[in-house]
Structures are given as C-alpha cells and as structure tokens.
Write a protein that binds this DNA or RNA. Structure first.
Lengths: 193, 193
DNA sequence: CGTACACTTGAGTAGGATCAATTGAAGTGG
DNA sequence: CCACTTCAATTGATCCTACTCAAGTGTACG
C-alpha cells in the first residue's frame, strides 16, 4: 500500500490487468491530479500506476487522510472534489469503450488528452505533444494494436494528428472532438492542492 | 441539479448516452450507495439515474455537503470512502468492457451483481433474483441485445443462470466468477450512512 | 382482442482480432 | 565504429466475434 500523492509535473496513468496479461488503462494523470486515494481510503490498491514521462510528486504523510478530514475540512472537500472529477472522466471513458466505434474512440481520447494538457498548461511544456505509444492508446480504447494503428493512420491522413515516436501531435482538436460527438471538458475552476 | 441521496432499498443504475441514443450503463446502485455526489460536489450532473425496482431514498439537504465536511469529519470521510469504492467498481467494469470477451463480461456482471446483492442482504428480499432486462445487460456490457441474448442463453444452457421475465436467477455464482477470472468483492466492512 | 414489450432465433455482414512480416530508430557491447 | 538486439510503428491477409436485419413467440395489460 503506497501513500497518497499529488502529481506536480509529468504524465502517468492508472491501469488494471487480467491474469493472462490483457491490460486496460483506466485514466491518465496530469499535474494537479491525486494518486492513490483508493489506497489511502480503502487500505488496498487494486490497480497499478505507471508514468509516461519524468514525474514530480508531492507525497502526503501516510496517515494524513483522517487527520486532514478532522483539521482541514476545506482541503478534505477538495480531495473529494478531485475524486469526483476523476470518476466523471472514468464515466466518459466507459461510454467511449462501450459504445463508440474505433474511430470515435480514438478521436475522443486524443481530443480529451489534448484539452486536459491544455488546461494544466502542460501543452507548452510538451509542445503540444502527448507522450504515449500506440500500445497505450490500444490499451485505453480496448482495441488491438494493429487496429489502433490503422485507425490512427486514418486520422493522420485526414491531417487531424501527426504521429511521432512515442508521441502524438494534435493538429485539429475541434475536428477530433467532433468526430467523437464530444462536447469537451466543462470545468474551468478547480482546487489546487 | 438534483440533490444528494442515499439509497435505502431497491435497485437503480447510472448511465450516459450519446446523441444518437447509444446508451452505456456505468454502474448499479444498491442499498447503502450514494447517489448524486457529482451533482453536489461539482454542481453539474453529467449522467442520468434510473431505477430498476421501487426505491426508497434518504434525501440530504441541498447545501449539506460543505456543512457536513465542516461539522462531521467522520461522516465526510465515509462519503469519500463510498465514492472511492464506487470508483473501484467502475474500474473493474471498464476492464471488463475493454478487455473481456462477451462471455466473460456477462459472467462477471452477473457474479458481481449477485455478490453485491448478497452483501446488502438484498438477496433474500429479491429471492436471489437480479431485477434487470437483457437490454440493461447489453447496455452495461457494451454489446448488442441480440448477442447478449445468445451469450446469456449459453450461460443458461450450462445451468449457471436461469432467465425469468425482467430478472436473472443466479444458480452458480462461483462458476460465473471463474469464467470471468474474477476474484470477487473484497470489502466486508463499510460505513453505514 | 389488439398492442406493446421482453425474449428468441436464424441468416448474412462487418468491424476488429490474429497472424505474419517489414521498416526504422535507438541503444549496447565488442 | 559497427554488428546485434530491442521496441515502436506499419502493412497485408485471413479469420472470427459480434452486429444488423428480420421474424416469430410469449406474456401482460388496457
């Protein structure tokens, strides 16, 4: 059981695997996101976390959480706010994997990550590049690598993205969100922990 | 923006839909579960809720939440605990939809709902029946109704379930969990709100 | 009775999986 | 500096899981 962190800079993701190795990426973590809340609240972590780029963390004390709720109700509320926001992102992701076509899913994922990176100002830091491999995309969308590659290729042919080594350059985020039939992120304000 | 509830009895579910009507069920709500946390924390509900059976709710006051965090840190912690547990269930669901086969998914869903019903003692109340239609199963698993029906039929032929009108009788929960390669629910203790 | 809705079942199709092989960039060790 | 491995991306061919279309059964209800 690891502790509770805040991600200060860099990219990471949460995932779960089946016995035979099939992997599902659950969500991505960007600066400002909380990591390991489950572990701290439930006492057991049922997923794994991996980073996509060099990462800086802010580590909370092990037993901080109950204390935090006692002494800093405002902060405790913010923690819950962040957890709630993460759940909404999971919701949208589940909708995507369950009901969108391969093309829609890919477009949604990239548009989504682009908007998130933009929100946290990471866009400049990474020059508009999303630091993931096609294997990550496949494991996020619930598709095979081969089909993922063919789908991304089509997006590239339409000049919506350009694929680099281990990174995706987003050329037309609006068109992508459009393909996915996705309204975009809503929240502007958020607590800074 | 609806308020915050606790489900006292009955079954319900959360879902999201795409413009053209494609629907994805996100998770199921059983007695003891919190409904509408997103709405209360974020101020905006991005999903819908529907009930599967007559339901009894315990309604919280509209602006209770910040107050709750101020004055009842223990309860606030429990709310966060419940939210965190819901997220773990979403995680497993996403793994299912993304990476399990139709048969595995169906087996997982039924074994999961059975265990949850058992945990809250709902099992007796509904006589071991899960009150859902095959359409619900399809929308949970991200499959078509036709294929869902054929898959459930196979489970029935194997004597693992029996399908009734708008309800599923679970005959062999262990075998189902086994097919899905699922370890089962872990938590025994939980806060009662 | 007629309509509506849940569940079934068969036939044909298609989106995505699997298999197999190639290219290219990036290390790594001799 | 150059063979050698490794891993990401790519592409073609074939297969199969799950989708769509289309009917039909059974039960509940007005």
């Amino acid at each position: 059981v690891l502790g509770l962190f805040t991600l200060l800079s860099g990219w990471a993701f949460r995932f779960k695997s089946l016995e035979d190795g099939r992997r599902q990426i659950l969500n991505y973590l960007l600066p400002g996101d909380l990591v390991g809340l489950q572990g701290s609240v439930i006492g057991e972590m049922e997923h794994s976390v991996e980073s996509l780029s060099p990462v800086v963390l802010c580590v909370f004390q092990r037993d901080t959480l109950p204390t935090l709720f006692e002494n800093h109700p405002g902060l405790a509320f913010d923690v819950t706010w962040l957890a709630s926001r993460e759940e909404r992102m999971l919701d949208e992701n589940l909708l995507s994997v369950g009901r969108r076509s391969a093309m829609e899913r890919a477009a949604y994922l990239i548009a989504f990550l682009y908007q998130r990176a933009e929100q946290v100002g990471q866009a400049k830091a990474s020059k508009g590049l999303i630091p993931i491999t096609q294997q990550h995309v496949a494991d996020t969308l619930g598709l095979s690598i081969v089909h993922t590659n063919k789908t991304l290729r089509k997006l590239a042919e339409r000049q919506l993205i350009r694929w680099h080594d281990r990174a995706c350059e987003v050329l037309d985020p609006e068109a992508l969100a459009d393909i996915a039939g996705w309204g975009g992120l809503t929240d502007r304000k958020r607590p800074l922990i």
